[in-house]
Design a protein around this nucleic acid. Structure first.
Length: 215
DNA sequence: ATCCCGAGGG
DNA sequence: CCCTCTGGAT
């Protein structure tokens, strides 16, 4: 058995984290429109914050067409607590306009199209595909996924695009969505940026970082 | 003080 | 590769 056996990694993380529970808050959005906007807003902030502002946002702008015609200033006021409010407000309005005009009001369900929307990078697109369409097309590389992948020794690259290539090569497609969520939870709770809790980590025996720093 | 379930631009 | 945009949580 290879030390990077995907089954080993996913099985051990599954035994530690309940993914269905932690995703609940994020999955409650009714349709792809809500999921897309909420995901764009969720950059660098918490789910709780996004849940609060989207309540008012979606009450006032229930679909792409209403948001496409929204006044920038009004949107900024509503989403202010999420941070980066100016950029985010411009982006969600511009993205709605693009969806309304070029995609007939339907949120695109493919990576190439989603990434064309302002404010949507590969990370956001992956989450929208996974949550709104159940079509995970890759592994969304955020800081947690990046840190864990490099510590375990799954990749030597530091650039997100290349890390994603390495990970999608190591893990079979049906694991992508789950690996994503599990790595993020593990990164927040155990494999933290500073002072990782290696003593309670059940991956330490196959971790390069642990071998080189903690043994 | 430091970090976050980022994106866009230089 | 670097920087900036922002607020909130810890």
């Amino acid at each position: 058995m290879s030390v990077f056996d995907p089954e080993t990694i996913i099985t051990r993380l599954r035994s530690r984290y309940d993914l269905s529970q932690s995703r609940d808050e994020f999955l409650h959005f009714k349709n792809p429109y809500e999921t897309l906007i909420a995901t764009i807003l969720s950059a660098q902030t918490t789910d709780k914050c996004v849940n609060i502002v989207t309540k008012e946002l979606f009450a006032r702008y229930p679909d792409v067409f209403s948001l496409a015609n929204a006044v920038l200033d009004d949107v900024e006021k509503i989403i202010h607590p999420t941070g980066f409010f100016h950029t985010k407000a411009r982006n969600i309005i511009a993205a709605s306009k693009l969806v309304a005009t070029e995609f007939h009001g339907e949120i695109p369900d493919h990576m190439e199209d989603l990434v064309r929307l302002p404010g949507v990078g590969r990370k956001t697109a992956n989450i929208v595909l996974d949550h709104a369409f159940s079509k995970t097309e890759g592994i969304a590389v955020d800081t947690h996924v990046r840190r864990i992948s490099m510590r375990l020794g799954l990749t030597d690259n530091s650039e997100p695009n290349r890390i994603e290539t390495d990970l999608t090569c190591i893990f079979p497609q049906y694991m992508w969505g789950e690996i994503n969520g599990l790595f993020i939870l593990h990164g927040r709770r155990v494999c933290t940026a500073r002072r990782p809790s290696c003593s309670i980590c059940n991956l330490s025996d196959i971790c390069r970082y642990y071998r080189e720093n903690c043994e």
